[in-house]
Amino acid sequence: MTDIALHVFILLFFAAFFAGFVDSIAGGGGLITIPALLIAGIPPLHALGTNKLQGQFAAASSTIAYARKGHMDIKAQLPMALVAAAGGAIGAITAAYVPGTVLQIVMPFLLVAVAIYFALKPNLSDVDGHRRLTPIVFAATVVPVVGFYDGLFGPGTGSFYMLGFVTLSGYGMLKATAHTKLLNFGSNVGAFIVFIFSGAILWKLGCVMAVGSVLGAQVGSRLAMKNGARIIKPLLIVTCLAMAAKLLADPANPVRMWMGF
């Protein structure tokens, strides 16, 4: 790729800050960074690889913040994190064989679908509910599937982990959010290792975004621990819909070209 302009670095730094903030509260930071990278003109595969570089720092930052306050047990989560890492690696290998246009086509609809889900899903609170899956079954089913998705596409991974914990493990939203962070870190690392060998990482840009995401994650995790789940739904809904609209507004988007406008 040619050199990236300074203003692109600055804009993506702030996009990563906001993504780290959102991801630390409810997951879904990739819903901001991946579209932002694509909008900035980064090729889809490089956008995925660069996002994994910055995303693992945000996840690690959030993990440490929640663990320090006693909202999660890192040692107890490690086996699940390793499963997530394996799923992320397999997903990243698969991503290398998926045409770049697929991401441009799928992303707007995925963003809208996530927004609709959050808008319509009832009873999202911080109160623990009924457990439907044991930890072992959860680790053998939900974790590798979401980890694979993280390596393949990525946006919304934290949200999907969180909702899995809420609906299947019976966790309240704050507890679920805290427990997703190490899993999200694991799937990010697994995918990141694969992207290193594929050469699909923009290192300078990824490091700049990593700084932004770490700062955002620290601010967001503290806010989440203070206020719980009250700010999650409107934040994700607005972000998802805004990014979907921006992607569809791109004249080069295949969906827009198919529709003839």
Score class of each variant (00 low, 15 high):
residue 1 M to D: 07
residue 1 M to L: 09
residue 2 T to P: 15
residue 4 I to H: 03
residue 5 A to D: 07
residue 8 V to N: 11
residue 8 V to W: 11
residue 13 F to N: 00
residue 14 F to D: 14
residue 15 A to I: 11
residue 15 A to M: 14
residue 15 A to C: 14
residue 18 F to V: 12
residue 19 A to H: 06
residue 20 G to C: 11
residue 21 F to Y: 04
residue 23 D to V: 05
residue 23 D to H: 03
residue 25 I to G: 11
residue 25 I to W: 09
residue 28 G to V: 08
residue 28 G to D: 13
residue 29 G to W: 01
residue 30 G to K: 00
residue 31 L to Y: 08
residue 32 I to W: 10
residue 32 I to M: 10
residue 33 T to I: 02
residue 33 T to W: 00
residue 34 I to T: 15
residue 36 A to K: 04
residue 37 L to H: 14
residue 37 L to C: 12
residue 38 L to H: 04
residue 39 I to Y: 13
residue 42 I to C: 06
residue 43 P to K: 06
residue 46 H to N: 14
residue 47 A to L: 10
residue 50 T to H: 00
residue 50 T to F: 01
residue 50 T to D: 04
residue 53 L to T: 09
residue 53 L to M: 15
residue 62 S to G: 15
residue 65 A to K: 08
residue 68 R to L: 12
residue 69 K to M: 11
residue 70 G to A: 02
residue 71 H to C: 06
residue 71 H to R: 14
residue 73 D to E: 11
residue 76 A to S: 15
residue 78 L to A: 13
residue 81 A to T: 02
residue 83 V to N: 14
residue 83 V to R: 07
residue 88 G to T: 09
residue 91 G to P: 07
residue 92 A to I: 04
residue 92 A to D: 03
residue 93 I to F: 12
residue 96 A to W: 00
residue 97 Y to E: 05
residue 103 L to V: 15
residue 106 V to S: 06
residue 107 M to Q: 09
residue 110 L to I: 01
residue 111 L to F: 05
residue 115 A to D: 04
residue 125 S to E: 00
residue 125 S to M: 03
residue 126 D to Q: 02
residue 129 G to E: 12
residue 131 R to S: 15
residue 134 T to C: 02
residue 134 T to F: 01
residue 136 I to D: 15
residue 141 T to K: 10
residue 142 V to S: 06
residue 146 V to W: 11
residue 147 G to H: 07
residue 152 L to C: 10
residue 155 P to K: 02
residue 156 G to W: 05
residue 157 T to H: 10
residue 157 T to L: 11
residue 158 G to T: 12
residue 160 F to H: 05
residue 160 F to E: 06
residue 162 M to C: 14
residue 165 F to W: 06
residue 166 V to R: 02
residue 166 V to Y: 07
residue 167 T to I: 03
residue 168 L to W: 00
residue 168 L to I: 02
residue 171 Y to S: 13
residue 173 M to P: 01
residue 173 M to G: 07
residue 177 T to D: 03
residue 178 A to V: 04
residue 179 H to V: 00
residue 182 L to D: 06
residue 183 L to T: 00
residue 189 V to D: 09
residue 189 V to L: 15
residue 189 V to N: 06
residue 190 G to M: 11
residue 192 F to W: 12
residue 196 I to H: 03
residue 197 F to W: 13
residue 197 F to M: 11
residue 198 S to P: 00
residue 198 S to G: 08
residue 200 A to H: 12
residue 201 I to A: 07
residue 201 I to P: 02
residue 205 L to Q: 02
residue 205 L to W: 01
residue 206 G to I: 07
residue 207 C to R: 01
residue 207 C to K: 00
residue 209 M to R: 00
residue 209 M to F: 04
residue 213 S to V: 05
residue 215 L to K: 04
residue 217 A to G: 11
residue 220 G to N: 07
residue 223 L to K: 04
residue 223 L to M: 14
residue 224 A to W: 00
residue 224 A to N: 08
residue 225 M to W: 04
residue 225 M to Y: 04
residue 227 N to M: 11
residue 229 A to E: 07
residue 233 K to L: 10
residue 233 K to A: 13
residue 236 L to F: 14
residue 236 L to G: 07
residue 236 L to I: 15
residue 237 I to A: 10
residue 239 T to F: 13
residue 239 T to P: 13
residue 240 C to Q: 08
residue 240 C to F: 12
residue 246 K to I: 12
residue 251 P to Y: 06
residue 252 A to D: 15
residue 253 N to S: 06
residue 255 V to N: 05
residue 257 M to G: 10
residue 259 M to K: 02
residue 260 G to D: 13
